[in-house]
Design a protein around this nucleic acid. Structure first.
Length: 104
DNA sequence: TAATTGACCTAAG
DNA sequence: CCTTAGGCCAATT
């Protein structure tokens, strides 16, 4: 049998979408956490690359995914940063010094 | 085919 | 707190 150690990236993508869809409104997680949760601890970047491909009309809560520091990955001041932050604030997420605050 | 890029992460100064 | 360096890996050039 031809050993196929090759990973099915389509499936990985689906798991990523699934994981992102699970994030409750008003809560956030990180690219690395998602990667770890789906069993691919070294694919934090791939999580970002996957979200990047999302169509603009996607209903997936991509805005609930931040970097390991709890900050928005986009450069401050960019339209994408603004949109993500606005979406989060509309869900009640509070930012202090550019970092989303933990429930508390 | 090789090099570069990127919505990342962590450890170490 | 900040910066640097190394690691990571699919996608793009």
């Amino acid at each position: 049998m031809a050993l196929v150690h090759r990973v099915d990236l389509n499936h990985v993508q689906q798991m990523i979408w699934q994981a992102v869809a699970q994030i409750p409104a008003g809560q956030v997680t990180s690219y690395g956490t998602i990667a770890k949760d789906i069993g691919f601890p070294n694919h934090a970047r791939y999580v970002g690359a996957t979200l990047k491909k999302l169509p603009s009309d996607s209903r997936l809560p991509w805005h609930r995914v931040l970097n390991s520091k709890g900050a928005i990955a986009f450069a401050k001041g960019t339209p994408q940063y603004q949109e993500q932050r606005l979406r989060l604030e509309q869900e009640g997420v509070v930012f202090i010094e550019g970092r989303a605050q933990l429930v508390g």
